[in-house]
Simulated assay, not measured.
Amino acid sequence: MEHYHMNLNLKVWRQKNSNTKGDFKTYQVKNISSEMSFLEMFDVLNEQLITEGEEPVAFDHDCREGICGMCSMYINGKPHGPWQANTTCQLHMRAFKDGDTIVVEPWRANAFPVIKDLTVNRSAFDRIIQAGGYISVNTGNAVDGNALPINKDNADNSFAAAMCIGCGACVAACKNSSAMLFLSAKVSHLALLPQGEPERKSRVMNMVAQMDKEGFGACTNTGACEATCPKEISLTNIARLNSEYLGASLSADK
């Protein structure tokens, strides 16, 4: 693959905090390697801003390996940028050409208020997990891996749902700012396993209630969430969530 360098125009959202109005600021970065990651390019920009006596751009990041879900931003209007099944930190600058203008902004959702610049508060997801996204077990020695026989299809589907990293791209892509794909992944990966059975009904009821309390929108099944999810979480999980919720709603034992 050809290695090249480029000069870019960046239109970056700058906002001091959630109580102030923000706007786009334009910056130029030069001699950017096509082998850099998108966040490494932002590191270059911030070093440039610091050298010029300006405040660097605030953005979330941690693992830079597509695992933690922290690096959440719109890139040219698309969550995580132009590549499919990739997080922002996995996006490389070879996705762009010399002279390109790149527009970068934070997630846009009432449930994800801007903290500063490109950093948003995604603690609403944490509170949804706290409402029921766990199993209650006694601590002690690890149980043998084969002690509980689990159907292979269930194990595979549970694993696929558990790949959700909670980045919020599904919410950002949805015209309603719905968190249904995120919630359905968290409910599905436990509902499909015997370990999740004891709290199955209370889990889905409590987590859906918390999601509504956080102010996320309703799901209208447009599929934008699945299309932009960096871990390719399937819409079938939303169907499973609806089934779980209906079953729990009709049961006296919730």
Rank of each mutant, 00 (worst) to 15 (best):
V114S: 07
V114A: 07
V114W: 01
I115L: 12
K116M: 10
T119M: 14
N121M: 03
A124M: 11
A124N: 10
I128L: 08
A131W: 15
G132F: 07
I135P: 01
S136D: 15
S136K: 13
S136Y: 14
V137T: 15
N138C: 06
T139N: 13
T139A: 13
N141W: 03
V143D: 15
D144T: 06
G145I: 08
N146F: 14
N146E: 15
A147N: 05
L148A: 13
I150R: 10
I150Y: 04
N151Y: 11
N151K: 04
D153L: 14
N154R: 15
N154G: 07
S158W: 01
A160T: 09
C164Y: 05
G166E: 08
C167H: 02
C167Q: 01
C170L: 06
C170P: 10
A172F: 03
A172D: 07
N176C: 11
N176A: 11
S178D: 07
A179S: 15
M180E: 13
F182S: 06
K186I: 08
K186F: 01
K186L: 10
K186D: 08
V187E: 00
S188P: 02
S188R: 07
H189K: 09
L190K: 03
P194C: 00
E197D: 10
E197N: 03
P198M: 06
P198G: 01
E199H: 02
N206I: 03
M211W: 07
D212L: 12
D212I: 00
D212S: 12
K213N: 04
E214Y: 02
E214L: 04
E214A: 02
G215R: 03
A218N: 11
C219H: 05
N221M: 05
T222W: 12
G223S: 05
C225Q: 00
C225M: 10
A227G: 03
T228H: 09
T228A: 04
C229P: 00
P230Y: 01
K231E: 14
K231L: 05
I233H: 00
T236E: 14
N237W: 00
A239N: 12
